[in-house]
């Protein structure tokens, strides 16, 4: 068997690029979050470190690195370290199947701007996202602190509950697209209408569930600052805490990318194929279009966070099981009926 070194190099560069992009976006999401919070509350936000406060994330990161590393004496040392590492790893892994753009043609070689175009892309994402619960659960359990444990139990049950509705809302989408590959789904939208037109209810359910999956307000009970002293990462300090917080922002970034790809045409934009520009330029424009869509979703995440108060836990569970899942089932039923009707 010969190893295709060129292929490995290409993928390595792409992986580093995607990883760097998600880290940078996550970094500047913290800045963006603070700015959005500030302008919504009639304040100014960080504006001291660098122009517009743009160096603030670096200062924050530096601070986290220099903080004292505290591992509680009664904690399970290995699991305590594994928790944030897993959260971070899983958050980064999801970005592998998202198509960041069409292909680039460099020196006659066609390079796909997607790390892995696997035909079960959506299934992969669901599998990896489900693993994310382990990071939170392990962290809360290993801290040996009842508040952390309580928060991680909350987080686990919340994420599992909303994953169901999320999956069900996606089944309806998959019935329309007939493919689990994200690249196929985006290409279909490139030549037709965006999926959100066919699946408005499905998108709404997916959006709400994405908020719950990312532990964002109004579903941020796992880290409810004023109820649980910070939630599952209560005992964490220094960069291990940073990993947890960072993982949340990467999750936000990836779910924004996912929502943009599934429902809003991904890297395609209207009039993309009739511009008459060279292939590579169109690809880059497509990537920028995707990035813009992602930024809009990130802004939505932040906008909602600084508007809506937190749900009570029983309300959260009731919404998940009594509203979201029946609605998703109904959406699935209607979509299935229409698909069948149009075939017959």
């Amino acid at each position: 068997m010969t190893i295709d070194w060129y292929f490995i190099l290409e993928k390595l560069i792409l992986i580093s690029g995607v990883l760097a992009l998600s880290l940078i976006v996550a970094m500047y999401s913290t800045w963006g979050e603070r700015k959005v919070a500030a302008v919504i509350q009639d304040r100014r936000g960080p504006n001291r470190a660098g122009p517009l406060g743009l160096l603030q994330p670096l200062a924050d990161g530096g601070k986290l690195f220099f903080k004292e590393e505290i591992i509680p004496a009664s904690s399970h040392r290995f699991l305590f370290i594994l928790g944030p590492s897993l959260a971070m790893l899983v958050a980064c892994m999801t970005s592998a199947v998202i198509p960041w753009g069409d292909t680039l043609v460099i020196a006659g070689q066609e390079i796909s701007l997607q790390v892995a175009d696997i035909n079960i892309g959506i299934l992969y994402i669901f599998g990896v996202v489900s693993l994310g619960v382990y990071g939170i659960m392990l962290g809360g359990w290993a801290s040996n602190n009842k508040y952390s444990l309580l928060a991680s139990v909350r987080a686990a049950s919340q994420i599992i509950s909303y994953e169901l509705a999320m999956g069900l809302s996606l089944i309806a989408l998959l019935m329309l697209t007939g493919s689990l590959s994200l690249k196929d789904i985006v290409e279909q939208q490139r030549h037709g209408l965006w999926n959100v037109v066919y699946q408005p209810l499905g998108f709404l359910i997916f959006l709400v569930c994405a908020f719950a999956e990312c532990n964002r307000t109004p579903f941020d009970l796992p880290e409810a600052e004023n109820e649980l002293n910070g939630g599952y990462h209560l005992e964490y300090s220094s960069m291990k805490l940073g990993f947890y917080l960072f993982a949340e922002y990467i999750n936000m970034f990836v779910s924004s990318a996912l929502m943009a790809s599934l429902y809003f045409g991904g890297y395609s934009f209207p009039g993309m194929d009739s511009l008459g520009l060279p292939h590579n330029v169109v690809t880059i424009l497509g990537f920028l279009a995707l990035f813009l869509k992602i930024l809009v979703f990130l802004f939505l995440f932040m906008w909602v966070r600084w508007t809506i108060p937190r749900f009570r836990y029983d309300q959260l569970m009731r919404l998940g099981w009594n509203v979201m899942i029946p609605l998703a089932l109904l959406n699935m039923l209607i979509t299935g009926a229409i698909v069948l009707f149009r075939q017959g």
Partner: peptide, 19 residues
């Protein structure tokens, strides 16, 4: 109600800063 609340916060983005 959520939409109404978000419209209010969005309006505040363009209002005069208090600080």
């Amino acid at each position: 109600a959520i939409w109404k609340g978000m419209a209010i916060t969005f309006k505040h983005i363009f209002q005069k800063k208090a600080t």
